[in-house]
């Protein structure tokens, strides 16, 4: 009964002010982020581009593309628009468009998976280090500092060089490269949050350390970490391509943009345009993830 009456008074009291506010409120944080993203055409364009590249990579086998492994001595280094080959052929006569689409699979794998893994591992380590402080913090952060001491490209090359080639080792190398920076972001955000009243307030309601970490710390650390991680995807795409370019990531004949760039490089005076295509793919992918990351940061910033 009381529920019904209170319900009535709410709708009765002032539809313009109260219900409007309530509607905006009930949408929540992520709905607000989505709403702000919808008005950001620039970011939307690059989001669409990135989705197109990802989608192409995902459904490549069902696109009816020419076989990316089919070589042909007669059709080497044909220009863009050559019959049957939308973007021409590479130095072994393989269809370049097909190889670019298939190459997106490994390039994106190397771009996204290490960042996701590093966000989980590095983020968690950072939160633990920041929350417990003292010895724990010392231990974790000094280990991270050791990794930090190396330039990221050098570290990636060193790790994957030691482990040997192959996609899996490339993934491990890139993950290790990204853990320290994400750990540091999570740690500094956690240290700031730890001193705030709501952590003490949660403790005063009887919450345990782990439940405080699970809800209050991770809830508040998530935004800066996710924004930073999204900016790392473009770096990871570049680094992954770099590893393959050096022959450390993906091994031939598996198509990969970095490795394609490396082998086509020798033909730069014969077909400069064709040689630039894998580079263009890397550039566009990296660029779109960068702009998406920027857009995400703007959309996730509630105060703006």
């Amino acid at each position: 009964m009381t529920d019904i009456t209170t319900g009535n008074t709410i709708t009765f009291q002032g539809p313009p002010a109260v219900s409007g506010g309530a509607e905006a409120r009930s949408r929540g944080y992520w709905a607000g982020v989505a709403r702000r993203l919808r008005h950001d055409r620039f970011t939307l364009f690059f989001l669409a581009l990135a989705l197109l590249i990802i989608l192409g990579a995902l459904i490549a086998p069902w696109l009816g593309l020419p076989d990316p492994f089919q070589t042909s001595m007669a059709r080497r280094l044909k220009p863009i628009g050559f019959k049957g080959h939308l973007l021409g052929t590479d130095e072994l006569g393989r269809d370049l468009f097909s190889r670019l689409v298939y190459g997106g699979r490994t390039s994106l794998l190397l771009g996204i998976v290490p960042v996701v893994l590093a966000t989980l591992i590095g983020g968690l380590l950072g939160v633990v280090a920041g929350f417990f402080g003292r010895g724990v913090n010392m231990l974790i952060m000094r280990v991270m500092d050791v990794f930090y001491a190396f330039p990221s490209v050098l570290l990636a090359v060193a790790i994957s060089g030691t482990l040997g080639g192959g996609i899996l080792n490339g993934l491990i190398a890139l993950t290790l490269v990204f853990i320290p920076s994400l750990c540091r972001i999570a740690e500094s955000a956690t240290v700031q949050i730890r001193a705030l009243d709501y952590i003490e307030a949660a403790r005063a309601t009887g919450a345990s350390n782990w439940s405080i970490i699970r809800t209050h710390v991770i809830g508040n650390v998530l935004t800066p970490v996710v924004v930073y991680a999204s900016s790392l995807i473009s770096v990871a795409v570049l680094l992954g391509a770099g590893l393959s370019f050096l022959g450390l990531g993906v091994e031939p004949p598996t198509p990969d943009w970095g490795q394609m760039l490396s082998s086509l490089r020798q033909s730069i005076y014969v077909q400069p345009l064709i040689c630039a295509l894998p580079g263009l793919a890397i550039f566009l992918t990296s660029l779109s993830f960068n702009f998406i990351s920027d857009g995400l940061r703007r959309a996730m910033d509630v105060k703006a």
Partner: peptide
């Protein structure tokens, strides 16, 4: 002591802005 906190003894804080977690309803 955790079972006591919140259940038998509770506390309210000075700054209502910072004592509530901004990311949860």
């Amino acid at each position: 002591i955790r079972h006591l906190r919140g259940a038998e003894i509770s506390m309210i804080f000075q700054e209502p802005m910072t004592a509530l977690d901004p990311v949860y309803t």
